[in-house]
Design a protein around this nucleic acid. Structure first.
Length: 470
DNA sequence: CTTAGCGGAGACCATCGGGG
DNA sequence: CCCCGATGGTCTCCGCTAAG
C-alpha cells in the first residue's frame, strides 16, 4: 500500500525560501510576484534574481487558498466554426493562464443557449464570454443581466449598455487610418492588388456581424464615382487608372459613404485625400481613394518613424499594399516589448495582412484574450483597433493610444462593484463539490455591508487603463 | 505632513492526527 | 466518534520607518 503523501513536500520551495535568499520578507516577495508597484527597483531585481536562482514557482493551491479568489469564466459558444473556436480558445487560455483564471467552456445550440447559460450560472462562474452569435442573443443577455453576472459580448455590433464588449471600432479605425494616409500625400506607398472588399455596403445601416454567413464580400456599386456627399474623398479621373487594379475605383466613395452616411459622420474633412473602409466586426481595412502615388515595394518605409516601432511598418504595409506576403506577423511579435497591456491595439494589429488580401482580420484568439481579461469586470468595453492607429497617433505627437480603452476607462475602479472578502463561510461547501461552488468572495452577498474590497491587483490582469490612458 | 517601501499578524480552508 | 488544534503557502490589512 502506498503511503499517503506528506501534506507538504519538505523540499518544495516556498516564498519564504525566496525571501531568505533575497534578504527580504515574504511579503516583499509576494509583492514582486504580483507586480505591485511599491517595491524599490533594486529590491525587485534582488527578488527576481532569487526566483530565477531557486527556480521558484508560486504554489497555485496556496494562492487560491490565501486569496480565495479563483476567478472562473464561462465561455458559452455555439459558433459552428471549429477554426474560430480553436483560435478563440487559444487566446482565451493564454489570458486565463496569465491571470490565474479558470475557463469553463459550455457548448450549446442557439436554441438551447438559455439552458446552457443557466448551467454556467449555476456552476458559479464569475463572468461569461459570449462570442458571436450569442453575443447578440437578447434572451441570454437578459438572463445574465438578471443574475448580475458580468458578461462580455465579443464582436457584437451593438453592445448593450450594461454588458461589457470587445469589438472593433471600425469607424474610428477608418477615421484614423484615413487621416494618416492623407498625411502621406506624395509618398510612395505601394500598389495593392487583389484587395478583398469586405462587407462594407451595409455598414451605413448597421454594423455587419462577422459571423453572418451571407454578409456581402464584395460591393456591387452603382453610384457614380463623384459622389456629391463626399467631395473630400473624390477620386480624380486620372487616379482611376491606378485604382483599377484594386477594383476599388468605384467602391471607394461608396464605402466611405457607407461608413457613416456622409462626411460629417465619418470624420472626413475637406482636403482628405484617401479613405479606408472598414467592414464587419472582425474585418477591417480596405484602402480606397486617390492612390496614384502608390507603387509597390514592400521594403520602402511607408511613413517616417514607423519602422522604428516594431510591427508598425509591417502593419501599414500589410494593409496598404495588400502584398502577397508580409514578412512576419509583426504585431504579435512585438508583444511584450512595450508592455503587455499597452500593446493590445498593436497586438491586434493586422494579423491578416499576410493573407495578401489587403484586409486585416483580427485574430479570434486576440479578441478572446481581451474578453477573458474583461470578463470578471462588472462592465466595460475594450474597443479593438488597428496597430496603425497607435502608430498614427504616436506620430502625431499624441499621448493617447487611440480608441482602445481598458476596462477601467469606462468602468471606473475595476474593483468597485465586485464583492470583496468577508468572514469565513465554513460549512457551506459540500465535500467533493468544492469546485462547483462560487469563490468565497462571490458567495458573499454582492454589495453587502462591511465587506473588504479586494484591491485591484496590478499584475497582468489589470492595470490596463493606467497603462493606456496616458 | 505625505509618501514610498517594507514587515508583522492573522486569515484563508481542507485535511490529518491526537485526545477525550 | 467527535472535537479541535496543527499544517500548508500566500494573501490582505495595518502599521512602522525613512526620506522628501
Amino acid at each position: 500500500m502506498q503511503p499517503k503523501p506528506a501534506r507538504r513536500q519538505k523540499s518544495a520551495l516556498t516564498i519564504h525560501d525566496v525571501a531568505r535568499y533575497a534578504g527580504v520578507s515574504p511579503m516583499t516577495v509576494s509583492r514582486v510576484i504580483n507586480g505591485e508597484k511599491n517595491v524599490r527597483e533594486s529590491t525587485r531585481e534582488a527578488v527576481n534574481a532569487a526566483i530565477r536562482a531557486l527556480n521558484y514557482q508560486p504554489n497555485p493551491a496556496a494562492r487560491s487558498l490565501a486569496g480565495a479568489d479563483l476567478v472562473r469564466i464561462g465561455l458559452l459558444y455555439s459558433n459552428p466554426s471549429a477554426a474560430y473556436l480553436s483560435e478563440f480558445l487559444v487566446g482565451g487560455l493564454d489570458q486565463v493562464s496569465r491571470s490565474n483564471i479558470q475557463l469553463v467552456v459550455e457548448k450549446c445550440d442557439e436554441e438551447a443557449a438559455e439552458a446552457a447559460a443557466a448551467r454556467l450560472l449555476n456552476s458559479g462562474v464569475d463572468g461569461i464570454i459570449l462570442p458571436p452569435p450569442l453575443c447578440d442573443s437578447p434572451a441570454v443577455l437578459k438572463m445574465l443581466a438578471a443574475s448580475h453576472t458580468p458578461a462580455v459580448a465579443v464582436a457584437t455590433g451593438r453592445p448593450p449598455a450594461d454588458v461589457s464588449a470587445v469589438r472593433i471600432d471600425d469607424f474610428e479605425a477608418a477615421r484614423q487610418m484615413t487621416r494618416h494616409l492623407a498625411g502621406l500625400e506624395g509618398r510612395r506607398l505601394g500598389r495593392g492588388q487583389g484587395f478583398g472588399v469586405g462587407p462594407v455596403e451595409r455598414i451605413g445601416q448597421r454594423p455587419v456581424q462577422a459571423h453572418e454567413p451571407h454578409a456581402p464580400r464584395a460591393v456591387e456599386v452603382q453610384q457614380p464615382v463623384h459622389h456629391p456627399r463626399i467631395e473630400g474623398a473624390q477620386v480624380q479621373q486620372e487616379d482611376e487608372r491606378d485604382l483599377a487594379p484594386l477594383g476599388l475605383q468605384r467602391q471607394g466613395p461608396r464605402a466611405i459613404e457607407a461608413l457613416g452616411g456622409g462626411r460629417q459622420e465619418t470624420g472626413f474633412q475637406p482636403g482628405d485625400r484617401g479613405g479606408v473602409a472598414a467592414g464587419g466586426a472582425a474585418r477591417v481595412g480596405i484602402v480606397v481613394g486617390p492612390v496614384a502615388e502608390i507603387e509597390g515595394d514592400a521594403g520602402d518605409p511607408v511613413a517616417p518613424g514607423l519602422q522604428e516601432r516594431p510591427g508598425a511598418g509591417a502593419d501599414l504595409r500589410g494593409l496598404a499594399l495588400g502584398q502577397e506576403r508580409v514578412a512576419e506577423p509583426a504585431p504579435r511579435a512585438a508583444l511584450g516589448q512595450r508592455g503587455q497591456q499597452r500593446l493590445v491595439a498593436h497586438d491586434v494589429g493586422l494579423e491578416g495582412g499576410g493573407r495578401g488580401r489587403g484586409e486585416a482580420q483580427v485574430a479570434p484568439g486576440v479578441v478572446a484574450e481581451r474578453a477573458a481579461r474583461l470578463a470578471p469586470e462588472p462592465e466595460g468595453e475594450a474597443r479593438v483597433g488597428l496597430g496603425l492607429q497607435e502608430a498614427a497617433v504616436d506620430e502625431a505627437g499624441g499621448r493617447r493610444l487611440g480608441p482602445l480603452q481598458g476596462p477601467q476607462d469606462v468602468a471606473g475602479d475595476a474593483g468597485a462593484g465586485l464583492p470583496g472578502r468577508q468572514g469565513a463561510v465554513r460549512g457551506q461547501v459540500v465535500k467533493g463539490q468544492r469546485d462547483l461552488h462560487r469563490p468565497r468572495r462571490l458567495r458573499q452577498q454582492r454589495g453587502g455591508q462591511g465587506e473588504r474590497r479586494r484591491p485591484h491587483r496590478s499584475n497582468s490582469d489589470s492595470g490596463t487603463a493606467s497603462a493606456i490612458a496616458l
